[in-house]
Amino acid sequence: MGGLGKTTLARNLYNSPSLSFHTRAWICVSQQYSTPDLLQSIIKSIKGHSEEMLKLIKEMSERDLVTYLRDLLKERKYLVVVDDVWHREAWESLKRALPDNNNGSRVILTTRKEEVAERVDDKGFSHKLRFLNNEESWDLLCKKLRPEKKMVGAELFSPSMERLAKEMVEKCRGFSYRKGVDEWQKVKTHLWQHMKNDC
């Protein structure tokens, strides 16, 4: 499901200074993709966007891009994030370019499709995100509202605002399911009505 924090979690790992990698690359796949474009994105993420580099990879065939990327990574300990994969074929078309050097290199793949995650790699580990429970959601809301203070509940809100905030926390689990502007407009109207009545 979108909005659970898959990309955020991957981004935090990718940027973590405690993880030691010689090379890092990040690409977003999405529903519509082109394998040469994805391979070029990984190469640009590693080698940069110089005019010479862009010209070189633009002229390469898909097979040449695979060979170039394998050669680029074969001696390096790398971390590659492949974000938002919708089709197993997208991963299959990329993995042949990512050598398994047995040197601690890693690939993080995010997907909202369980069937993609389950069939990615026999040696891989799959982490399924879950919704926050009400207590965790409440703690998160309080931290977001007052990150500099360690205040909770009654210290943050008037009693009527606290009721509304707790109601929102309970219903937020369903926000990710809402699709389209109309549904979000209903949420906004409903919240605005409660806020006006409270004033």
Rank of each mutant, 00 (worst) to 15 (best):
W192S: 13
N134E: 15
K150C: 04
K143F: 05
E170Y: 08
D139Y: 08
G104C: 04
W192V: 13
H127R: 06
E155M: 11
P147C: 02
S105E: 00
N103G: 15
G174E: 14
D182P: 11
L94Y: 04
A90S: 14
N134G: 07
L72Q: 13
S158M: 14
E118N: 10
P147V: 06
A90N: 08
C142R: 04
V107H: 00
E155F: 06
N102C: 10
K166A: 05
P99C: 07
W192E: 14
V169W: 06
H87K: 06
E114V: 08
K186L: 13
W91Q: 09
A117E: 07
L79C: 04
K188C: 12
S176A: 13
K186N: 09
W86G: 01
W91L: 09
S126D: 02
D71W: 01
E75T: 15
L132T: 12
A154L: 05
G180E: 07
P99W: 07
L72G: 01
E89M: 10
K128D: 08
S160G: 04
D83W: 00
E114K: 05
Y177E: 06
S158N: 05
C172D: 00
R130N: 10
T111Q: 02
F125K: 11
E136G: 13
R106C: 04
R178P: 01
N134M: 11
E183I: 07
S158V: 10
E135I: 13
N134T: 14
E167D: 06
K186F: 06
E162Y: 00
G104Q: 02
F157V: 08
N101F: 08
S93G: 06
S105R: 00
V187H: 00
S93E: 10
Y177S: 09
R119N: 15
D84N: 07
H190V: 03
M161L: 15
G104N: 03
S158Q: 13
D121G: 05
V81E: 09
A154T: 03
S158P: 11
L73G: 08
V187M: 01
F131K: 12
E148R: 15
K186P: 01
E114R: 05
K166L: 09
K144V: 04
F131A: 08
L140P: 03
P147M: 01
E136Y: 12
S137M: 02
L73K: 10
V116Q: 03
N102W: 05
N102V: 11
K74V: 08
R112S: 09
K74Q: 12
D122S: 14
F131L: 12
K74E: 14
R112P: 03
E135W: 07
K188G: 06
G174W: 09
R163S: 03
K95H: 12
D182H: 12
H87P: 02
K188I: 15
G174P: 06
S126P: 05
P159R: 00
L164W: 00
